[in-house]
Each structure stands twice: as structure tokens, then as C-alpha cells.
Amino acid sequence: MHQATSCTSLDEVRQNIDRIDEALVALIAERGRYVKRAAAFKKTSDDVRAPQRVEQVIAKVRALATAQQANPDIAEQVYRAMIAGFVEAELAEHAALRAN
């Protein structure tokens, strides 16, 4: 694991941020593939929206952020935005599956 405190220049900090961004985007893409697959198992659009599940995920993410010494408010904001985007994509996938 890299330590931000060991960076000796802004360029080194930026290189590490770029490395992290690449890993995060790959993980978001993987998560998206699972979300798309989940649409096949849900019967209604309400099942896709699943507000109780969203709140379970948010609670889990806040706990994970705290355990990793990350800001739980930032983690929650990121996840709420990501989940909103994924719900829209899953609703479209769900509708397409139901149309076929």
C-alpha cells in the first residue's frame, strides 16, 4: 500500500491519484456489470429502486469509510451519486428485458 505522506512532489501525488482513479473506474465498471445482471432477477421497477437496500448499502459504506479512516460523509455522497446513476441504468435494462 502506498502512503501519501511519502510523496515528495506534487507530480508524485498526481501520479498516485491517477493510479487510484484508474483502479476506481475499473471497479465501477465491474460493479455496473453486476447491477446490469441484477435487473434480470427483479420483477418490478420498485424492486430496482429498492430504497431500503440503498440505505443498507449507505450504512455499510459509512462503516467501511470509518474503518478505513476515510470521511464517511464523502463516501456517502459518492455512493448516493453512484447508486442514483446505477438505478437509472438498471431501470433501463429492466425495461428492455421486460420488453423482450
Rank of each mutant, 00 (worst) to 15 (best):
M1S: 14
P51W: 01
C7W: 05
A99N: 15
V35I: 12
Y79M: 11
K60I: 06
G85M: 06
D11P: 05
I83G: 02
D18G: 08
Q15L: 12
G32F: 02
N16H: 15
V35Y: 05
C7T: 10
A59R: 06
Q56D: 11
R53Q: 11
F86H: 09
I20F: 13
A39L: 02
D21A: 13
A75H: 03
V25D: 12
Q52H: 10
E30L: 05
D18N: 14
E12G: 03
L10N: 07
A40T: 04
V78R: 03
L97A: 02
F41C: 10
I28R: 10
A84H: 05
A40Q: 07
A99G: 07
L27V: 10
L10C: 07
A50Q: 01
T44Y: 06
N16R: 14
A70I: 02
I58A: 04
V57E: 04
I28M: 12
V35H: 04
A39V: 02
P72H: 00
L27G: 09
R49A: 09
I83P: 00
E12K: 06
G32S: 04
R37E: 15
A70K: 07
V54H: 05
V35F: 07
F41W: 12
R14T: 08
Q68D: 09
R98V: 15
A65R: 01
A81D: 14
Q68E: 10
R14G: 02
K43E: 15
T5V: 14
E30P: 00
R19P: 00
A29D: 14
V87E: 03
V57R: 00
D21H: 12
A65L: 00
I74L: 14
I74N: 06
M82C: 11
R19H: 13
A67M: 08
I17Y: 09
T8L: 15
L24H: 08
L97D: 03
R62H: 03
D73A: 11
M82A: 15
K36L: 13
